[in-house]
Design a protein around this nucleic acid. Structure first.
Ligand code: FES
Ligand code: FES
Lengths: 134, 134
DNA sequence: AGATAAAAGGATATCTTTGTCTTATTTTTA
DNA sequence: TAAAAATAAGACAAAGATATCCTTTTATCT
């Protein structure tokens, strides 16, 4: 489904959304401990997300990762595309050269439905709020 | 989504269903050429499927792979489980230790829907017939 | 019986993903 | 200004997935 990298990244972004806000930031170390994932590995993923402006970061003492106002609309799809690429959304699930409703493979309609259900999910901050409420 | 192995295996089984029947069998070499996948690699996958009785094989000249009567109800789910294991059907998409509707991750209901849509698909031979009709 | 064809199985090579470690760079604080 | 804290970046290691090659076993045909 998703690569391990992508799973880590999604969970990390949700964690950032849930535990930062205003001036508050959270360090890579703290996130890694909370999610129980390898710190250095996660750090690279966070850097990649930051380079693509899906999350924000600030260096130095008291720095860390956070969601700036311009990150409030970041979606799960954005994170997936950033880490795993667009394959999940565009490639045929069976590896056929093209994926299209013109000449669909037996899995096409099922993958299409799944794709769309992910694309229609709400923003990361909205998802994080939902989790908190439960 | 699926491993490359699993994609090869699914396509191969569909190909077998479409191109064999009665006494007719098809060799690994022929399948590999038709699907444009590495022959020796595919052969191992077919052996694995045969060991688990999802497909049938016979050795020697004129031998090959085919679907015996007892293979007629083989499903896509069977093939996926045989090659990739049961993770797609039981593990949390985000890698959380347990996947359950009790404490669902934000992706849970979406993955659940996808799982069920795959589980409810028809048998491999039925899918192969559908393809032929189009 | 011998030759041939095909699956079965094992050993090995290559590539990708995942994980670790070390060093630089930037920022805050004393 | 110096020390400390944190991200950024790069080199390297380990594990897993993918791919190739070679030998063995089994069945068929002449
Ligand atoms: S054609 Fe296979 S998933 Fe679209
Ligand atoms: S809990 Fe994450 S997919 Fe079920």
């Amino acid at each position: 489904m998703f690569s391990k990298s992508c799973k880590y990244a999604i969970r990390a972004v949700l964690h950032i959304a849930a535990h930062t806000g205003g001036e508050k930031k959270i360090g890579a170390k703290e996130i890694a401990e909370a999610l129980e994932v390898p710190k250095s590995f996660l750090a690279k993923l966070l850097q990649q997300l930051a380079r693509h402006h899906l999350i924000s970061s600030s260096k130095g003492a008291g720095g860390g990762f956070y969601l700036a106002p311009e990150n409030q609309e970041v979606s799960l799809e954005d994170v997936i595309r950033c880490i795993d690429g667009e394959d999940l959304f565009t490639s045929c699930a069976l590896g056929l050269p093209v994926c299209s409703s013109d000449k669909p493979c037996p899995l096409h309609c099922h993958t299409l439905a799944f794709r769309q259900s992910i694309e229609q999910m709400r923003s990361i901050p909205a998802l994080a709020r939902e989790i908190k409420e439960n």
